[in-house]
């Protein structure tokens, strides 16, 4: 149970900079998710916290203590790996026991601790099996049990669910969240899956190309994206971004016209979420490009002169391809971004 502080952390591999000047403060007992596309530096950041990589510059502190020169094994950090990383030559019981043995926890306590950890992840009946005899989900739970058994200061999870199928992923997600609340251990979780990030996190850190794009609660990130990268990364389907110009309180692009703050002028990108558009209205004119019913909702793609716009239409919406269509925007939920990609015109 400890806070984590990253101060001006840089990690470069030769001439390639993996993480650039990163400042991050993880509060005690917080569930923080690092989210970003592959190669954005999120795993490198986590590995630096773990001590598996050393920062080129900057400070890393856990619980206030400087960690830069402390070996991974002395950091009191537990990590769950994407590939589970269970020891194949040991039974699940021995796997969970390994950190206790290595940290000289008195032998008399082992059994009790192991059984409690196994119970927490519902692995009781499988303790004497070898990892090879377990399913993917069971292995992942064994890896979790091994991480929680010694009650570390910090949990690190590196895409722990990405090798599981969708259904199992959903149930494991709930389990991880519940466990973290129960154990109250500061957790840093790396993923490229925004659903995982949104559902698990107290706060999300969105990274791209080694730079933090935005830090905020899931709600905050969703409703107040700081720039076009965040806007285009979060949401499924993501926010529509339409390049155009603003003049005298009106934003216009090919086939699009919406009111905008009077202060904006020049090249501006408009952002509108698919759920804030509806069929019928006068903000956008285009042709139907595709209609995809999914049961509870119908995804409608509208073609305009230079871009396809995604819209979440009502469940019974149907229209023939290439027919003309008019779309209205919820004008209270428009986002404007300047030429550098950052949000502008916020009241």
């Amino acid at each position: 149970m400890a806070s984590i502080l990253l101060k001006n952390v840089v990690k470069s591999f030769g001439s390639f900079v993996g993480v650039q000047d990163m400042n991050l403060d993880v509060v005690d007992e917080e569930f923080l998710v690092l989210l970003g596309p592959s190669g954005c530096g999120k795993t490198t950041t986590m590995r630096m916290i773990a001590g598996l990589e050393h920062p080129t510059e900057g400070e890393i502190r856990i619980g206030g203590a400087l960690m830069n020169d402390i070996d991974a094994r002395d950091r009191d950090v537990a990590m769950v790996f994407q590939g589970y990383a269970l020891y194949p030559n040991m039974s699940i019981y021995e796997n969970i026991r390994f950190p206790l043995r290595m940290r000289q926890v008195p032998k008399a306590k082992h059994d009790d601790l192991i059984r409690r950890a196994a119970e927490m992840v519902e692995l009781g009946p499988f303790l004497d099996r070898k990892p090879g005899a377990l399913s993917g989900g069971q292995r992942q739970r064994a890896a979790l049990a091994r991480a929680i058994v010694r009650q570390p200061q910090v949990f690190l999870m590196d895409e722990p669910l990405s090798n599981l199928d969708a259904k199992l992923r959903a149930s494991m997600r709930v389990q991880i969240k519940h466990m973290q609340r129960e154990l109250k251990v500061t957790t840093v979780y790396v993923t490229h899956d925004q659903i995982e990030a949104m559902t698990l996190a107290d706060r999300i850190v969105i990274m791209n190309k080694g730079v933090i794009q935005q830090i905020g609660t899931p709600d905050d990130i969703y409703s107040n994206p700081a720039n076009t990268f965040v806007a285009g990364f979060i949401g499924s389907p993501p926010m529509n971004l339409i390049a155009g110009t603003a003049q005298n309180g009106t934003f216009s692009a090919a086939g699009v016209k919406v009111p905008c703050p009077a202060s904006l002028s020049g090249n501006i990108t408009l952002g509108i979420r698919p759920e804030d558009c509806q069929v019928g209205g006068d903000n956008l004119q285009g042709q139907v490009y595709g209609v995809e019913p999914t049961g509870d909702i119908t995804y409608l793609t509208v073609r305009t002169a230079n871009k396809n716009i995604e819209i979440k239409a009502g469940r019974e919406f149907r229209a023939p391809i290439d027919s003309a269509i008019a779309v209205g925007f919820d004008t209270t939920r428009l986002y404007f971004f300047g030429e550098d990609g950052n949000r502008v015109g916020v009241k």
């Binding site: 001590g51 070996d71 094994r73 537990a78 994407q82 590939g83 990383a85 194949p88």
Partner: peptide, 15 residues
């Protein structure tokens, strides 16, 4: 040998 396993062992406190 899987490097992840080695790293896991290091984090588990193994020399």
């Amino acid at each position: 040998q899987d490097e992840e396993i080695e790293e896991a062992a290091r984090l588990d406190g193994a020399s």
